[in-house]
Amino acid sequence: MSTKISTWPAATPMWVDLGVDDLPAAKAFYADLFGWDFASGGQDAGDYQLAQLRGRTVAGMGPKQDPDTPTAWTTFLASDDVDLTAKKIDAAGGQLLAAPFDVMDSGRMALAADSGGAAFGIWQAGTHIGAERVNEHGTLCWNELHTRDYTAARSFYSKVFDVSYQDVTEEGLIYSTVRRPLDGREVGGIHHDTALPDHTPNHWMTWFASDYVAGTATRAVELGATLLGPVEESALGRMVVVRAPQGEVFGVIDAPRTSD
Results as ranks from 00 to 15, higher is better:
Ser2Ile: 10
Thr3Trp: 06
Thr3Pro: 07
Thr3Tyr: 08
Ser6Arg: 11
Pro9Gln: 07
Ala11Val: 00
Thr12Met: 12
Pro13Met: 08
Asp22Ser: 11
Leu23Thr: 05
Ala25Gln: 13
Ala39Glu: 14
Ala39Tyr: 01
Ser40Arg: 02
Gly41Arg: 00
Asp44Pro: 01
Ala45Tyr: 00
Asp47Thr: 14
Gln49Trp: 05
Gln49Gly: 06
Ala51Leu: 07
Gln52Asp: 03
Leu53Lys: 15
Gly55Tyr: 08
Arg56Trp: 04
Thr57Val: 14
Val58Gly: 03
Ala59Phe: 05
Lys64Gln: 13
Lys64Tyr: 10
Pro67Lys: 13
Asp68Lys: 14
Thr69Ala: 15
Pro70Asp: 11
Pro70Met: 11
Thr74Ser: 15
Thr74Lys: 07
Thr75Glu: 09
Thr75Asp: 10
Leu77Tyr: 12
Ala78Thr: 04
Asp80Glu: 13
Asp83His: 10
Lys87Arg: 15
Gly93Asn: 09
Gly94Gln: 02
Gln95Leu: 10
Leu97Thr: 12
Pro100Gly: 06
Phe101Pro: 04
Phe101Met: 11
Val103Lys: 03
Met104Val: 12
Ser106Ala: 15
Ser106Gln: 15
Gly107Leu: 04
Arg108Leu: 08
Ala110Asp: 05
Ala113Glu: 09
Asp114Met: 07
Asp114Phe: 05
Asp114Leu: 02
Ser115Gln: 11
Ser115Phe: 06
Trp123Cys: 01
Gln124Ile: 04
His128Tyr: 15
His128Asn: 06
His128Glu: 03
Glu132Asp: 04
Arg133Trp: 01
Val134Gln: 09
Val134Ile: 14
Val134Lys: 05
Asn135Ala: 13
Glu136Thr: 13
His137Met: 03
Thr139Trp: 02
Thr139Lys: 01
Leu140Ala: 02
Trp142Lys: 01
Trp142Glu: 02
Leu145Val: 00
Leu145Met: 11
Arg148Trp: 09
Tyr150Gln: 09
Ala153Glu: 09
Ala153Ile: 05
Ala153Asn: 09
Ser155Asn: 11
Ser155Met: 05
Val160Arg: 00
Val160Met: 04
Phe161Gly: 02
Asp162Pro: 00
Tyr165Ser: 06
Tyr165Arg: 08
Tyr165Leu: 07
Asp167Ser: 01
Val168Asp: 13
Thr169Arg: 01
Thr169Trp: 05
Glu170Ala: 13
Gly172Lys: 08
Ile174Asn: 10
Thr177Gly: 06
Val178Trp: 03
Pro181Cys: 02
Glu186Leu: 03
Glu186Asp: 14
Val187Thr: 09
Gly189Cys: 04
His192Glu: 13
Thr194Phe: 06
His199Tyr: 13
Pro201Ile: 01
His203Val: 04
Thr206Gly: 01
Trp207Val: 14
Trp207Tyr: 15
Ser210Ala: 15
Gly215Phe: 01
Thr216Ser: 15
Val221Tyr: 09
Gly224Trp: 08
Leu228Tyr: 00
Gly229Met: 05
Pro230Phe: 05
Pro230Asn: 07
Glu232Lys: 12
Glu233Ala: 14
Ser234Leu: 07
Gly237Glu: 10
Val240Tyr: 03
Arg243Tyr: 02
Arg243Phe: 00
Pro245Gln: 07
Gln246Tyr: 10
Gly247Trp: 10
Glu248Val: 03
Val249Met: 05
Phe250Val: 00
Gly251Asn: 05
Gly251Ala: 11
Ile253Gln: 13
Arg257Ser: 12
Arg257Tyr: 03
Thr258Val: 13
